[in-house]
Write a protein that binds this DNA or RNA. Structure first.
Length: 372
RNA sequence: GUGGGUGUAGCUCAGGGGUAGAGCACCAGGUUGUGGCCCUGGAAGUCGCGGGUUCAAAUCCCGUCACUCACC
């Protein structure tokens, strides 16, 4: 069911356009996947996502496992039906959350024991269980359980984490293969901190195991931007060009442009949704903070020329009013715009790649931002 | 009318002789495999008003005004 093919390549960079076929529709790449941790892209209905031309969202194994739990979702035959979303779903394995949210986690070769951040209850997450849960969720793309490390991390920690991630990847694949009925794909996750030789070791070991696609984890964790690009630049070419390449957790619009230039196909990031809820709006001219008093009586839309529902119908003054009054509609309208901005940015990049003018687009992107 | 209490930043209040403070609100940054949170800065006061004591008063004393409670 799952397949990927490259349909166009940029002549001057490693940027490429592709087509991802999933059990829930085809997805054009490069693609941005809005984050819908709990089975909802915060504040938006599936219809609104559809109107923003979203084709695939990201949901989270750790969160959905703790609440509402697999049994509930199984009763609805999976997350798509449960949340009323017909598009594709990629599920993060929960590795990142175990290390960012859970208290008192203990990690062993077997798996991770952790306490729920919700009620303190004890749980064990093994590679096998992470896959079982994702199959239960009926994810179109599943992620291997991985160990995330903090930045900065010394070489020993980075090496230990990548080796564990590699061992876990083999067990994830084994479990995945034991469920041929599942239509979902399985991606491996490259770790290795900021050490190139470790990144190479991690990537090579995963490629040897042959996954449906490959992700680069452990970036955008506080390291300098140059370093993030350096590691991505080094790692992306080591992954097979015939497979989709996913940079997890990145980033700003500019980050995405640069990572696409390096050959990345898939992205997820909380910035457009979280920042929408904090009043920061993305536009082709740069970001604006809708709570700034200068917008108090501004009749213009957030971004002149934007075709999103929010910009077509509401002024900056009204959005600022909603935001300052903490009205629920503020979260929704702001999120619609930011998601639309990210999705349309990817579409514009894809068109540029197909017309072999990615570099021209990239230049225009930076020039436009100087005219706010 | 009598007695008590309270007047300090837009709001709620600390501080009881030694450079005027906090929280919220406001103004502005930040946010990168999500709790809507959180973090960092900034602006803001004739300490109700008028006198007095003191080297020095938001602080002690006298007067006065406002609000408030109790009792006539």
């Amino acid at each position: 069911m799952f397949s990927f093919k490259v349909v166009a390549e940029s002549g001057t960079t490693r940027a490429r356009a592709g087509l991802l076929q999933t059990a829930h529709g085809a997805v054009e790449t490069p693609v941005f996947m809005p984050v819908g941790t709990l089975g909802t892209v915060k504040s938006l209905s599936p219809e609104e996502l559809f109107d923003c031309e979203v084709g695939i969202i990201l949901a989270n194994t750790y969160h959905l496992y703790l609440r509402p739990g697999c049994e509930v979702i199984r009763r609805f035959s999976g997350l798509h039906n449960f949340m009323h979303w017909d598009g594709a779903i990629l599920t993060d394995s929960g590795g990142f959350q175990v290390f960012s949210l859970a208290k008192l986690r203990t990690i062993t070769e077997e798996g991770v024991t952790f306490q729920s951040h919700i009620d303190g209850s004890q749980h064990v997450l093994t590679p096998e269980k992470a896959i079982e849960i994702q199959i239960c969720l009926d994810a179109d793309i599943m992620m291997c359980l991985d160990e995330c490390i903090q930045y900065p991390a010394d070489r020993g920690n980075a090496k230990g984490a990548l080796e564990l991630t590699t061992h876990w990847a083999a067990r994830c694949k084994q479990t995945w293969q034991e469920h041929p009925d599942s239509a979902g794909a399985l991606f491996g996750i490259v770790q290795g901190g900021m050490f190139k030789d470790l990144r190479a070791m991690s990537a090579d070991a995963l490629v040897e195991k042959d996954f449906s696609g490959y992700a680069i984890g452990g970036l955008s964790v506080g390291e300098p931007k140059d370093l993030m690009f350096e590691i991505a630049d080094f790692t992306l070419p080591r992954l097979p060009d015939a497979k989709p390449k996913y940079v997890m957790g990145a980033g700003t619009p500019a980050d995405l442009i640069e990572l696409m230039a390096l050959g990345a196909d898939m992205f997820d990031c909380v910035l457009p949704t979280r920042n929408a809820r904090n009043g920061q709006m993305f536009t082709k001219f740069g970001t604006i903070n809708i709570c700034n008093s200068r917008f108090k009586d501004d009749p213009d839309p957030v971004e002149t020329g934007c075709r999103c529902y929010t910009c077509q119908n509401y002024s900056r003054a009204y959005l600022r009013h909603l935001y300052m009054a903490k009205e629920l509609l503020a979260y929704r309208l702001n999120t619609i715009h930011n998601i639309y901005f990210y999705i349309s940015l990817m579409k514009r990049v894809r068109t540029a790649i197909c017309e072999d003018r990615f570099n021209e687009f990239r230049k225009e992107f930076y020039i436009e931002r100087e005219h706010i």
